[in-house]
Design a protein around this nucleic acid. Structure first.
Lengths: 214, 214
DNA sequence: GTACGAACTGACCGTATGGTCAAACCATGC
DNA sequence: GCATGGTTTGACCATACGGTCAGTTCGTAC
């Protein structure tokens, strides 16, 4: 099947990395669909249409491959947030734009947030890597937020950031449970729009309270 | 070892259920410490000081034993919330008392909330059972909340309850990650008190906004 | 003491996992 | 044609898992 498309000369050029990225793409797609539980060497190999041993030949171990996939998610997550914050505007405008970007990203990368949440809780073998990423991105977000929301104690950026993040993130990780608890699919466009309105409302309520010195 | 403490006549009386509860207790303790990942038949047996086959003799399967342990958590969770809501008072008083009870319970049962969060996200073999419990307790909470916070759309009890719940719950499930991201242990008495103050502040901010017609 | 039956044990099975390895394959350079 | 070296393969290994089972222990009733 492969030999039919291969041409003379392209072997050394392409196959230098083509197999590695082929496996990486399959791994990424598999992780998005099946989660970290279904992320096994055999499953990745089957998905990539490749012998299982090649997983280890190109990526060393399943854990290394997992880390590489996760790094891709992390990079785009950070890039999205940085882009959103680079635009000028009032404090409220910037906060709401950051919020929208955050919701968008979680909406588009449900597998990522599910995995991060599970590993952060200390439940998996990749807890160390995920926690390092999480600490990095949290510290960056806090450094950006501190000039916007200067306060301390119970209304510090730490708590505010964490709470807002929880409000956004859990909606997607809890989606399967919400479907049953609420009696309707929380991921339809209408439901998502309502949720988005809610988090904007909630953030405004917090900012109002802060400005009034609550 | 057992025969030294055993006495004539007590066999039928005690051993009727003593072994079953002995295994159940070990299973509960193990689940609290190691989480659902470390919850294997061999581990439970080792912890209970019992032959592995007895797990299946008394409980049928590992999944059945897991369900029984979870049922205990669920019962006390529901009992705690019902007790908190049974006390009379103003709307704000009742909301804040419910909140305190919720924080207390999560603080005392971190294993439970970690497991529920993981299974709810669809990552484990017990997702169905956990989601049924979650749906029950959510629907009960909503039925209690609807008279207190009557609104719809983006500020409906559904969204409010879910957001507040996320704010409370994630603090405990994310504790390992927060320790690294924040640079200090989020579970010290001082840190917990600050977090408790934060969630009370946040709920008040929401209630203020609601009352002003936000 | 002997038959009975519940409680208990260790060995075993099937399956799945991550990972290894010697051998085979095959395009290329000489 | 042939040696070379990166690439690919199927067979294989160790480990861990849930679960089963034939057989043994042991208190009790007769």
């Amino acid at each position: 099947m492969r030999s039919s498309t291969a041409q003379p000369g392209e072997r050394q050029r392409d196959s230098e990395k083509v197999r590695a990225t082929q496996i990486l793409n399959a791994a990424s797609a598999l992780l998005a669909e099946a989660g970290s539980d279904g992320f096994t060497a055999a499953a990745v190999a089957r998905r990539a249409g490749v012998n299982k041993a090649l997983i280890f030949y190109y990526w060393g171990s399943v854990a290394d491959l997992f880390e590489r996939v996760l790094q891709g998610y992390y990079d785009s997550h950070r890039a999205a947030l940085e882009t959103a914050l680079s635009v000028a505007g009032t404090k409220r405008e910037r906060v709401h734009r950051l919020l929208d970007t955050y919701v968008d990203f979680m909406q588009d990368n449900r597998a990522y947030v599910r995995i991060v949440q599970h590993q952060i809780a200390g439940g998996g073998p990749y807890a160390a890597v995920v926690q390092r990423h999480y600490a990095e991105i949290t510290q960056w977000a806090l450094s950006q937020l501190e000039p916007l929301v200067p306060s301390s104690g119970a209304t510090s950026p730490r708590h505010l950031h964490f709470s807002i993040s929880a409000v956004v993130v859990n909606y997607f990780t809890y989606a399967p449970g919400l479907a049953e608890a609420w009696g309707h699919d929380p991921l339809t466009p209408g439901a998502l729009a309502e949720r988005r309105a809610h988090v904007h409302w909630l953030v405004d309520a917090c900012l109002d309270s802060l400005e009034r010195g609550g």
